[in-house]
Design a protein around this nucleic acid. Structure first.
Lengths: 252, 252
DNA sequence: CGATTGCTTGAGTGTCATCAACTAGAGTGG
DNA sequence: CCACTCTAGTTGATGACACTCAAGCAATCG
């Protein structure tokens, strides 16, 4: 609907999961070679989305989930009063659209916030394939479980944290996601605007701006527009809390 | 860990899913008779939890998911600063614990807020069983998808709504959950304390109290302690927004 | 019966939102 | 090339909504 790119380009690029640098983050993680080939066959690499393009709209019939290859997407929910609330950003290697399975309709919209490419995975074919490949099914369980966790962390952020803590959490979280892909976790470029950040964090844009300059004055970060580098990681971590990841299995 | 009830009572009550009044909400929803029997065999009905008992603690190794039979549980997350943030309440027919799949450790704690009984479903046996019963697997996908949706709705609530809207949303949401089980959606007993409500909604307890009395003065509800009845549903709905359920597939 | 717990109500305060003005950069067109 | 516009972001002044502190009430409990 939102995109009619299911053109001749389909399957042209098949058999790439194996070579994809993101496979360690994405579905193929635990699959055997032959299984990856099966997966490859149902995946469609799509034409890039430009900044502002929708991947799907809230209310569209749910047909596929998507894996981000490059770029960034924001996922947001329209309230009845017409405001949008961003619920997540999606970076390369991450899977989106899973919240549509239940109602067969996407309950949220997804929009590229910079040039972005995705792999489309028709869900009903994935479901079929997961009958044959239990590992794939288990991997899906894990991914969905993770997204539930992430949601819970976001609830904590919105329910309990003040402006400073929220911004610090965002920086840490994005840093970790860069790190996971092999980039610096302390020096990166924010792909989203201040406006999007403020929306996501449940703050006013002015507040985000003020927090950023305050952080700079205190020497916690250096910010030059969207270029961020964390100069006092410890302090940022302290502000953020342990939120961002559950690598720490040793929580009472 | 938190509970050592895996006693002789195990499996005594087997083969009950079929007769359980909640089966229409829970896993068996779409299963054939023979499949329900399989499911029945791996489920353990547990001794009731008293108010305040933990079902599991944040950090416990993940082994099972649970279906609520009677009562209510709260699920909450401990922040490093020691505060707790309630992320969800669980009512009869609902499944909890799924967020533990990813890390094999529960990332949250679950505690009974009144006398509560649950069915324990060892996850690894469920996973096995779902290899044999694709419908069961699909049902699990749906349930997890739904929980992701619910999380997104909660993010909207915390990010965009004011105190009145938050409380109205809670009342609507709980009402709908009662209705789903065949009770009145407008007249019910809150099983949680004001304190728990305020925590859940990201408000101070005093604010919740004030909103409640304001609602009463305006004739929107009648509240007598935990007994609530919504006397002006339309107005409450308007305040709440469309949030609570996705029965409306016709959202642009 | 005092003690405790859960809830309500009031008064004062603070954090963050709102409103507004201003800067900087990018794109447009004369 | 300059003026113009538009967008994104920063900064300042003001105020509101919800928090904190505090007191009081009702019900339950030991």
């Amino acid at each position: 609907m939102s995109l009619a790119y299911n053109t001749n380009l389909k399957n042209k690029l098949t058999s790439q999961c194996k070579n994809c640098s993101l496979s360690s983050l994405c579905l193929p993680l635990v699959l055997k070679d032959e299984d990856i080939n099966c997966l490859d066959q149902i995946i469609e690499r799509k034409k890039p989305l430009k900044k502002g393009d929708f991947l799907f709209h809230q209310g569209d019939p749910f047909e596929s989930i998507y894996a981000v290859r490059t770029g960034t997407l924001k996922v947001f929910n329209m309230t009845d009063s017409g405001e949008e609330q961003i619920t997540t950003f999606y970076y390369p290697g991450e899977l989106l659209g899973l919240s549509g399975i239940n109602t067969k309709v996407y309950p949220i919209s997804a929009k590229a916030i910079e040039t972005t490419t995705v792999c489309e995975i028709p869900f009903y074919r994935l479901e079929e394939l997961s009958n044959k490949i239990p590992t794939l099914k288990n991997q899906l369980f894990k991914i969905m479980s993770r997204q539930i966790c992430d949601g819970q962390q976001m609830i904590v952020l919105l329910g309990k944290k003040n402006a400073d803590e929220k911004v610090a959490s965002l920086l840490m979280n994005i840093g970790l996601r860069f790190k996971r892909r092999g980039y610096s976790g302390t020096s990166f470029r924010l792909s989203m605007s201040r406006n999007e950040i403020s929306n996501y964090l449940g703050l006013a844009i002015e507040t985000v701006s003020r927090v950023m300059t305050r952080f700079q004055k205190k020497g916690l970060i250096k910010a030059n527009g969207k270029e961020i580098s964390i100069t006092n990681l410890e302090e940022i971590q302290k502000l953020a809390g342990v939120i961002t990841e559950y690598d720490n299995t040793s929580n009472t």
